[in-house]
């Protein structure tokens, strides 16, 4: 994501957005980019308004600046604290500020890295609604650890593990590929390690205090296993654990 956001040089390869060669003409990409990094800080002694106003100038917004900045501050609900120094902001407020600056200036390409960290569930929903709405007109690239979000939001997804792309395609296709191949069984706690050695276990989660094991298998692995309606988390673990590589598009 950093490479797309012009912050890092790739070891090899190229990035094209339409006719734009991103690696050659970084400034042109920056002009249409809205970027929210995963981790970012703030200038502790500058107020939210001043900072957003300054970023607006850097984004090339001049005449409409006041209107746009005020609108965004209201949207992310930082209007009441716009004159407070950013250093006093809580994690969630900082995140909202980050969202506001990423949306400044009508970006045509939005890159958001873990954007909902620190937001409460209601805000997360509202932000996702906005993103999917924006996503109808512009490109949105989103990374998340909350796997179910992907199904709600994304038309295209990729699974990346340790720098390698394990899957890329639509969430629906990914689900179809594992449909009917995921099985679950409740296993006593002390037997889990042994069970994992003998079965293709993709994940273990606790259900009502007891381990529930998900297993990947084309056919029923035996008695006591129930078929599961696969979700994206199963897809994720299937790929991460290396049980399925056939759908990899390259």
């Amino acid at each position: 994501m950093r490479t797309i956001a012009t912050l890092q040089e790739p070891d090899s390869g190229s990035i094209l957005l339409g006719d734009l060669d991103v690696l050659k003409d970084k400034l042109e990409l920056r002009k249409i980019l809205g970027y929210l990094p995963q981790e970012f800080g703030v200038y502790p002694k500058v107020s939210a308004y001043d900072m957003l106003d300054h970023i607006a100038i850097l984004k090339g917004i001049d005449k409409q600046r006041k209107v746009v900045v005020e609108d965004l501050l209201k949207r992310v609900n930082l209007w009441d604290v716009r004159k407070k120094a950013l250093g006093g902001f809580s994690g969630g407020m900082k995140q909202r500020f980050g969202i506001a600056q990423a949306l400044l200036g009508d970006p045509k390409l939005i890159i958001v890295d873990e954007p909902t960290a620190g937001l409460d569930p209601g805000e997360r929903n509202r932000f996702y609604n906005l993103l999917s709405e924006i996503g109808e007109q512009v490109i949105v690239i989103l990374s998340t650890h909350i796997v179910e979000d992907v199904k709600e939001l994304c038309s295209q997804m990729a699974i990346i593990d340790k720098g390698r792309v394990l899957y890329s395609g639509s969430p629906e296709n990914a689900l179809q590929a594992v449909e009917g191949k995921i099985w679950k069984k409740q296993v006593p706690k002390q037997e889990v390690p042994e069970f994992s050695d003998t079965h293709p276990v993709i994940s273990t989660r606790m259900v009502a205090g007891k381990p529930m094991v998900h297993v990947f298998s084309n056919t029923s692995p035996g008695s006591g296993f129930d078929p599961v309606q696969a979700d994206l988390e199963d897809v994720f673990f299937t790929h991460i654990k290396g049980f399925q590589t056939s759908t990899l598009l390259s």
Partner: peptide, 9 residues
């Protein structure tokens, strides 16, 4: 703030 800053146009 460098990640945000450096990507500005």
């Amino acid at each position: 703030v460098n990640d945000i800053y450096d990507a500005l146009p």
